[in-house]
C-alpha cells in the first residue's frame, strides 16, 4: 500500500515529464523544481488557511503559480533550444534547476515544513482486516483520475491530436496551420501543471524541503526511462514498479539502506536490455 501511494505521486510527476518529452523532445531537468515550487506553495497556503480549506486553496494557488513559472521557462529557455542538440537542452534546463533551487531557498528558507492532510481525507480506514490511511487512498484515486484524464486529453481532443502530431512532425504541423509555438507552450504548461499536482498531493504525506527537486527528478527519470519516455502506460507501469520496489526494499531490515539502489539497479537493467524502455520506441 505504501508502495502504491508512492507510485501514485511519482506517476503524476513522471507522466508530466514524459508528456513534455514526447511532444517537445526535450528532457526537462527543471521538472522536479516545478514540483518543489508547488509543494512549498501548498504547505505555506495550507498552514495559513487551516485544515478545512487550506489544501484546496493551496492546490489552486500551486497549480497557478507553477503553471506561470512553467510558461515563463518555456518562453525564456526552451524555445531557444528546441532545434539544438540534446546536450544544450540538458544544460539549459539544468541551469533552470539551479536558479529555482536558489530562489526557493531565498523565498521559503531551508527548513523542512509539514502540513496535515485535508480534513476530508484524514484518518484511516479498515478494509479486509488491514488499515489504510485515507489520504493514501486519495492519492491513488487522484493518480488514476489523472491517468484517465491525460489519456482522454491525448486521444479525444483536438489539442491531444495536435500534440500527437507534433510528436512526429512539428514542421508539417505548422505548415498545416497549427500555431506550434503556442501548442508547445500549452504542452509545457500542462507538464508543469502535472508536476504541480504531484507536488501538491505529496505535500501532506512528506516533509517539504529544498532537496525534493532532485530527489523526485531522479525517481521520475527512472520511471519514465523504465517505462519508455513519451509513453503514458509506460509511466504508469514504471511508477508502480519503482514505488513497489522502493517500499519493498524499505520494509526489509536488511535492505532498507539500499532501497533506492534497487530502483537504479532495475533502471540500469531495463536500459541495458531495452535502451528505449519497456513501452518506448527506439529513436532513430
Amino acid at each position: 500500500m505504501g508502495g502504491l501511494s508512492n507510485a501514485a505521486y511519482l506517476f503524476i510527476v513522471a507522466v508530466g515529464l514524459s508528456l513534455v518529452f514526447g511532444a517537445l523532445r526535450v528532457i526537462n531537468m527543471a521538472h522536479g523544481s516545478l514540483y518543489m515550487i508547488a509543494a512549498f506553495v501548498t504547505v505555506v497556503v495550507a498552514n495559513r488557511l487551516g485544515l478545512a480549506l487550506g489544501f484546496w486553496v493551496g492546490l489552486l494557488a500551486a497549480v497557478i503559480v507553477t503553471g506561470a513559472v512553467g510558461v515563463l521557462i518555456e518562453i525564456v529557455v526552451l524555445r531557444r533550444v528546441y532545434r539544438e542538440e540534446h546536450l544544450i537542452q540538458l544544460l539549459g534546463t539544468y541551469a533552470v534547476t539551479l536558479i529555482v533551487a536558489g530562489a526557493v531557498r531565498i523565498i521559503f528558507g531551508s527548513n523542512y515544513r509539514t502540513m496535515s492532510p485535508p480534513q476530508l481525507f484524514s484518518g484511516s480506514l479498515s478494509l479486509a482486516g488491514y488499515r489504510y490511511s485515507v489520504y493514501s487512498l486519495f492519492m491513488i484515486g487522484a493518480a488514476i483520475m489523472i491517468a484517465v484524464g491525460v489519456n482522454l486529453m491525448l486521444y479525444r481532443t483536438a489539442l491531444g491530436r495536435n500534440i500527437r502530431a507534433a510528436v512526429s512532425d512539428s514542421e508539417l504541423l505548422s505548415a498545416s496551420g497549427v500555431n506550434v509555438a503556442r501548442l508547445f507552450t500549452t504542452v509545457f504548461a500542462i507538464g508543469a501543471g502535472l508536476a504541480a499536482l504531484g507536488g501538491v498531493i505529496v505535500a501532506p504525506s512528506q516533509a517539504v524541503g529544498t532537496s525534493m527537486d532532485s530527489d523526485v527528478l531522479v525517481l521520475a527519470f527512472a520511471i519514465s526511462v523504465i517505462g519508455g519516455l513519451g509513453s503514458i502506460i509506460g509511466s504508469a507501469v514504471g511508477a508502480v514498479l519503482v514505488g513497489e520496489i522502493y517500499s519493498f526494499g524499505l520494509v526489509n531490515p536488511y535492505t532498507n539502506q539500499f532501497a533506492l539502489a534497487f530502483v537504479f539497479i532495475i533502471m540500469t537493467a531495463v536500459l541495458t536490455i531495452r535502451p528505449w524502455g519497456l513501452f518506448g520506441r527506439a529513436e532513430q
Binding site: 500527437r164 512532425d169 498545416s176 500555431n179 509555438a181
Partner: peptide, 24 residues
C-alpha cells in the same frame, strides 16, 4: 507571418516523400 498564419491564409503544402503524421 509565421508558417501557421500563412497556412491559414491559403497556403497548403504537400511535402516530399508524402510526409504525413504516421502516428495519427
Amino acid at each position: 507571418w509565421p508558417a501557421h498564419r500563412r497556412a491559414q491564409s491559403g497556403l497548403a503544402y504537400v511535402p516530399s516523400g508524402a510526409r504525413c503524421f504516421p502516428n495519427l
